[in-house]
Amino acid sequence: MLLSWLNILAGGVLIGIVYALIGSGLTIMFGVMRVVNFAHGEMVVAGMYMGYFAHSLLGLPAPLAAIIAAVVMFAFGYLLQRLLVEKFMARPQHIQFILFIGIALVITGLHLAIFGPDAHAVDGPITFATISLGPLSLDLVRVQAAGGAAVLILSLVLFLRLAPLGQAMRAAADNRTGSLVIGLNVPRICALASGIGAACAGAAGALISPVFDTEPYLGLEFTLIAFVTVIVGGLGSLAGALVGGVLIGLAEASAALAIDPQLKTAFSYGLLLLVLLLRPRGLFGADAG
């Protein structure tokens, strides 16, 4: 009994790490661009399709597919910012909201038009494989997804801390006028942030493609999960996204255990509500508003 509980909770943590990667993308875009990407979930779904086809056509495992998805989605995010979103940076929030709803609709429509409305499930022996970790027995695809996500989050943190470009991004996130003054190319940094955000979403999608069935309409659900993750952690904070993701994964798993699997999303929204009210800027958000 206790063991199966632990198994389910561990599974929740593993998915939570992938949520953290999705949230990291959203949080980087918000931190640097001050724009909320309402099409984030659709970008995750795009990554899921890439993961699915990399597996079924090329036989690639999810972590390799994730690299392809990250590269493709980086280009997509970069160009999207340069060609479209850039023109809306100074517009009010509700206009940006409509812009991203429009982008989300176009992405969903493209998925529908190209892949059809049916669910695509990765199959094969890997989906049933488990690995044992001490007393725990974990789904291989989940471990693989969490591992891939952890590596990507870690490299993202290293990039932001150590690489000059990453440091420039953090400077731009901290102080926009200041970074303009010291001569940072802010539009290019925004495009990079947009690319990295989309790459996180795409890679996460590819990583979870063997875990969840891929369908065009999943986008909104992932967007909402990403919101909950980053708001719990604090919009704009990477550490927050990590903690938020794991907390949401845990909350979903324990809700499924303790109450009813159907209510797991209600549980994570409850967690979100609690955090919003106790710490309006999230667990790791800056207090000054």
């Binding site: 209510l263 106790l278 309006p280 508003g289």
Partner: peptide, 25 residues
């Protein structure tokens, strides 16, 4: 609780989604 702008929008989404899930069950 001083929840405003984007955070207000997300608070409203959270309450609405939570109620939707509760009604679904």
């Amino acid at each position: 609780f001083g929840v405003r702008d984007v955070y207000f929008a997300l608070l409203a989404i959270a309450v609405a989604e939570m109620m939707r899930v509760i009604f679904s069950n």
